[in-house]
Design a binder for these strands. Structure first.
Length: 552
RNA sequence: GCGCUCGUAGCUCAGCUGGAUAGAGCAACGGACUUCUAAUCCGUAGGUCGCAGGUUCGAAUCCUGCCGGGCGUACCA
């Protein structure tokens, strides 16, 4: 907030220098205003001297001096502006500017941090998209939480967000699922049979088979067609998946079934359109898509010689449907195993006349599981995975969300269930939540002691003067920018790190200074700060889907 | 082989659209509870930012090469 004001004042000075002929306008937009890393370098700092000196071939400090001279006349925002180091301009902001943040935050309340930068752009976030072959595992959990927090951030910044889950309940995987279910069904009935070699081995299949017996007895034992088994499995698994997601606070606006692309003729239509445009040809009895026309190394098969489409074709058709539904921005959250499909889909989208620049793919790295110190290759089929439900049981929703949001998407994560269980108490989510609980506690105590929460105009705000207090205000002032950046960069971890930092500053302050004392005016002033801070922490937790307990 | 991606403290990770002295948590060590919640705080220690070049006033950050991990590289999804 304040940074932008400083930047715009600096821009004015720069332009003034241009019109006076001191320097050219080449440097326009090249210099920055940033938060310095070290103490004593001001509240903000600009590299303008160094940048302009490079362009004009002049001494950076001299240029910085000229800027400072112009700035001095400009505004009461600054307490001091000085040249430092090799040619930086450091800005020291008047303390009162920081204090004025308090009434702003209090007035905006839950809206502080929200913004309209999204301009109501329609965004679809596609995530999870797991086929119903088993419970959600850790990897899905990461994706679910990543996608959901991105969606939340976009909503907070004025985007119109639509969450979609894309799934496929046809094909080989599902046939195997049906066969596995039938095999277990017969097993439970004591019938002789063989479990499919590549069948799904999890306990959940047995449970599903049992449910069939409960409902229908042995009426299905002579069914050769696996459809009924498949459908039962799908129904149960999907119910579990939605329950798991809901438990984590994740709700979808739509589940999109890949099969509808066939039923509604979109698959055939896409092939026709591509053929009309000359991007498709036949060879070796298969249908090929000329991805080489889009700079790829080789063409790709979209319909196998058996007549079945490869996964690329429905993926392309699906993306066309997304475009046709008039979204301005399409965000796909994929695991890194989908890297290879992305360029093909993009080529397809482009070939059909849509703009691939409207698609952003967030790829997240895998979560590897270690058990007894050894890495386990997770597989739904072999059922050697850890489910999201198990994790939630053990660590709770908040800790799990925090854990997954802490890391940026493209970092690999190692997950050790034993360690997670043991360490869940150390999860930094509690550090932030405890901060919130403490803030609430102060407000409660104040009420009990009869120290009233007065409006900002009625307190002596100059009493808010400790460096820790001003630093808290400075940190609070960046909150809207943090949210905005995290949203536009699709990087929820930035909010997490911000909250940890802010909570840390508060905990320090709490241990050093007392808010409620016999000094009533001072207590009242500090209480205003505490109230505003509580709002920021609460909003931060809310925005990324975490609870903000008032007591712990 | 090729493509994408990662490599920062003992461990887990921030920082990466170039800026001044590279940060946090955990683990280690030493301190602070008759005081608004000690799920907290304060301090100490810990680094060739994978390696080597290059670009420039300035590189953890950009470029090139190499080394090492992950994921791909199907008429599997």
């Amino acid at each position: 907030m304040i940074r932008l004001q400083v930047k715009s004042i600096l821009d004015d000075c720069f332009l003034q220098g241009v019109s006076e002929g001191i320097w050219s306008d080449t440097g326009k937009g090249r210099y920055t205003v940033e938060l310095p890393k070290h103490e004593g370098q001001g509240d903000f700092s600009s590299n303008i001297g160094l940048v302009l000196a490079g362009i004009e071939k002049k001494n950076p400090r001299e240029i910085a001096e000229k800027i400072v001279k112009k700035l001095a006349l400009k505004t009461e925002l600054f307490e001091k502006v000085e040249v430092a180091g090799p040619g930086f301009v450091n800005f020291f902001i008047n303390s009162d500017v920081w204090r004025q943040l308090i009434p702003v935050v209090v007035e905006k309340g839950t809206d502080f941090g929200r913004s309209a930068v999204g301009n109501n752009r329609k965004v679809m976030v596609e995530f999870v998209s797991a086929n119903p072959t088993g419970p959600l595992s850790i990897g899905h959990g990461r994706q679910a939480i990543l996608g959901d927090s991105i969606a939340r951030l976009l909503e907070t910044t004025g985007h119109e967000v639509f969450r979609e889950y894309y799934y496929n309940d046809a094909g080989r995987q599902m046939r195997v699922l049906g066969e596995s279910t039938r095999a277990r069904y017969l097993e439970l009935l004591g019938e002789k049979n063989e479990f499919p070699e590549d069948g799904y081995q999890g306990q959940y299949i047995i449970d599903i088979s049992q449910s069939l017996i409960d409902e229908k007895g042995d009426a299905l034992k002579d069914y050769r067609d696996v459809t009924v088994f498949k459908e039962q499995a799908e129904k149960h698994i999907f119910k579990d998946i939605s329950a798991t997601l809901k438990r984590m606070g994740i709700i979808f606006d739509n589940y999109f079934n890949e099969r509808s692309l066939y039923e509604d003729g979109h698959i055939d239509d896409v092939v026709c359109k591509l053929r009309d445009k000359g991007y498709v040809y036949e060879k070796d009895n298969a249908v090929w898509f000329k991805t080489t026309e889009f700079g790829h190394e080789q063409d790709r098969v979209i319909i196998k010689s058996s007549g079945e489409p490869t996964y690329r074709l429905p993926d392309i058709a699906y993306h066309r449907e997304k475009f046709r539904r008039d979204f301005d921005w399409l965000i796909d959250i994929f695991g890194s195993d989908h890297i290879a499909t992305v360029p093909d889909v993009m080529a397809g989208v482009e070939a059909l006349g849509y703009d691939p620049a409207k698609v952003t793919v967030v790829l997240h790295q895998f979560v590897t599981l270690t058990r007894d110190g050894k890495q386990v290759k997770m597989s739904t089929r072999k059922a050697n995975f850890v489910t999201v439900d198990e994790l939630v049981d053990v660590v709770g929703v908040d800790a799990l969300r925090f854990f997954f949001m802490m890391r940026k998407a493209d970092s690999q994560m190692e997950f050790d269930l034993d360690l997670a269980t043991r360490k869940s108490q150390e999860n930094p989510v509690y550090y932030v939540q405890y901060g919130h609980a403490r803030l609430c506690s102060i407000l409660r105590q104040a009420a009990e002691k009869g120290i009233s929460k007065r409006p900002f105009e009625n307190i002596d705000s100059s009493l808010i003067q400790e460096p820790e207090e001003l630093n808290l205000l400075k940190a609070m002032s960046t909150f809207p920018t943090v949210i905005e950046n995290a949203a536009l960069e699709l990087a929820p971890h930035k909010v997490i790190f911000y909250l940890i930092e802010l909570a840390g500053q508060f905990h320090s302050y709490y241990n050093k200074h007392k808010v409620l004392t016999d000094n009533v005016p001072l207590s009242e002033a500090r209480l205003c700060l505490i109230d505003a801070l509580r709002i920021v922490v609460k909003n931060g937790l809310d925005i990324i889907g975490l609870t903000a307990p008032e007591k712990m």
